[in-house]
Write a protein that binds this DNA or RNA. Structure first.
Length: 159
DNA sequence: GCCAACGTTGGC
DNA sequence: GCCAACGTTGGC
């Protein structure tokens, strides 16, 4: 069977909470704690092998810093059942879990990251959603043409 | 620290 | 089903 073309995504995380270096150390991580339906639905449409730009948010400067890859899909987010987790959801049940997640795999860090400010100079919100003012979505698709252009600018990710 | 944007909740 | 109140995200 022919390999399907990967889709591209952008996923935000705060470097103090879980940054690209955490992923570099762990290699694999569960992208859990997503409590937004739109973001969850994007995760549901992910395929193993899809690529995602790792975006550092809530920091100076917010930037695309690395690349990762979807390694497992359709996983139930365990934090929704954990009463001690800040992501605990009392309205979710094991019989009918509300939140799921994917497993991501480290690919590499870009030699030179691209800041949000620079992204705004290059792309319109139609070309790259994250530059849209007030965008709070933490997971969003990236158009193939934009993704290819980004990869050209960012160069080869360093493992 | 401020606040714009916007998703969610709950009263009606 | 509307919408006001509230909470959160995240840039600045």
């Amino acid at each position: 069977m022919a390999q399907q073309e990967p889709n591209y995504w952008l996923m935000k995380s705060e470097p103090d909470v879980y940054g690209i270096n955490h992923l570099k150390q762990e290699v694999l991580t569960l992208w859990d704690g997503i409590r937004n339906y739109q973001a969850r639905n994007f995760m549901r449409s992910m395929q193993v092998g899809d690529k995602a730009f790792f975006y550092h948010s809530n920091c100076k400067p917010p930037s695309i810093v690395g690349l990762m890859e979807v390694s497992k899909t359709g996983l139930i987010d365990p934090t929704q059942f954990d009463e001690n987790s800040k992501y605990f959801d009392e309205k979710s049940s094991r019989g009918k879990p509300r939140w799921d997640c994917v497993q991501m795999k480290y690919v590499g860090i870009f030699n030179q990251s691209i800041s949000l400010e620079e992204l705004r100079e290059i792309y319109t919100p139609e070309k790259l959603q994250v530059v849209k003012r007030g965008n709070r979505l933490s997971i969003m698709p990236v158009l193939k043409t934009t993704a290819n252009d980004l990869l050209k600018r960012l160069g080869k990710p360093i493992v």
